[in-house]
């Protein structure tokens, strides 16, 4: 009896020791993964893409009911302010019609001027329309997952736009999935110009809903309401995509509100600027040509 008790005591001690040891091992393994990820970013990139491709069927299944739920939430919100919204839209429509006339006139004029000046336009951009199937929005990341990937011609670094303006750029590409990094992400740096003054600057995200304008030559020239557009420096972005407007100018810091509404993104367009095609052997590369079965508009 006493022997058996002793045995049980020893056994339980051994078990606790193993458990403690196991915890240490697990902690070391977690740290190992973190250090490995820091040292070998390419490996992590591959692992991320693999994880995305593996998780995508589940995401696809989750996305539909979630979209339905989102629509209900949005409907409820809009229902409350239907009347005001209608009045606002009618007013906006009148204003936009005036703008449309102006735009048509300018477009014609521009075309004639270009003909006169023998102006050569940049490469033609084409679009790949994608549905957002996943969010990667946390306290540290601002991004989303798209249902198009390498097969549809998406490549890392391409611009992602919504109807209102620039949303972000492609950060990672899997076979059928791509991850967008929004302009509001803390890792986003975007070469832009201020539309009115043509002054160059860098637009940086800091995970908050607004963006920060940095590397300005002078803050003095910036006014509230100035539109910020992409400058096209760095190559892969088209020139002149609207990004946002200045909402706050203080000492040394200019805040910009992005035009894209990240809280209700459903479809986005990936802009294929054809730069990859230019680098190739000179043939008329058409990387944007989507294979059958991919949702493209």
């Amino acid at each position: 009896m006493a022997i058996r008790d002793d045995f049980e005591v020893v056994a339980s001690q051994v078990r606790t020791a193993v458990q403690r040891f196991a915890l240490g091992l697990l902690v070391i393994a977690a740290f190992g993964a973190m250090l490995l990820g820091k040292a070998d970013t390419v490996l992590v990139e591959h692992a991320r893409v693999l994880a995305l491709d593996l998780a995508s069927p589940v995401l696809e299944a989750i996305a539909r009911p979630v979209a339905a739920a989102n629509r209900v939430i949005a409907d409820l919100k809009e229902f409350a302010s239907l009347r005001e919204e209608n009045a606002r839209l009618r007013e906006e429509n009148v204003r936009l019609l005036a703008w449309q006339t102006a735009a048509r006139r300018l477009e014609n004029e521009n075309e004639r001027m270009r003909g006169l000046a023998n102006f050569r336009e940049g490469p033609e951009a084409s679009f790949i329309t994608a549905r957002i199937v996943g969010d990667s929005v946390s306290a540290y990341v601002r991004g989303a997952l798209l249902n198009v990937g390498r097969k549809a011609g998406v490549a890392s670094g391409q611009a992602v736009v919504t109807g209102e303006g620039l949303a972000g750029r492609i950060a990672e590409v899997g076979e059928n999935r791509a991850r967008v990094l929004f302009v509001t992400d803390v890792n986003s740096r975007l070469p832009v110009v201020i539309e009115r003054t043509r002054e160059r600057a860098i637009l940086a995200g800091d995970n908050s809903p607004q963006l920060r304008l940095t590397l300005l030559q002078s803050v003095a020239g910036v006014q509230r309401g100035d539109r910020i557009v992409t400058s096209g420096h760095g190559g892969s972005f088209p020139v002149g995509i609207p990004v946002g407007e200045v909402v706050e100018t203080g000492e040394g810091s200019v805040r910009v509100r992005p035009f894209a509404d990240f809280s209700r993104l459903e479809f986005v367009r990936v802009v294929d600027y054809g730069v990859t095609g230019l680098v190739g052997s000179g043939g008329p590369a058409a990387p944007a040509a989507p294979p059958a079965g991919v949702r493209v508009r």
């Binding site: 393994a29 977690a30 740290f31 990820g37 990667s136 946390s138 990341v141």
Partner: peptide
């Protein structure tokens, strides 16, 4: 891995 974020540590949630 799924949450992403360039440069973010992979394995911190595991820890």
């Amino acid at each position: 891995l799924l949450l992403g974020g360039p440069g973010a540590p992979v394995g911190v949630s595991a820890l």
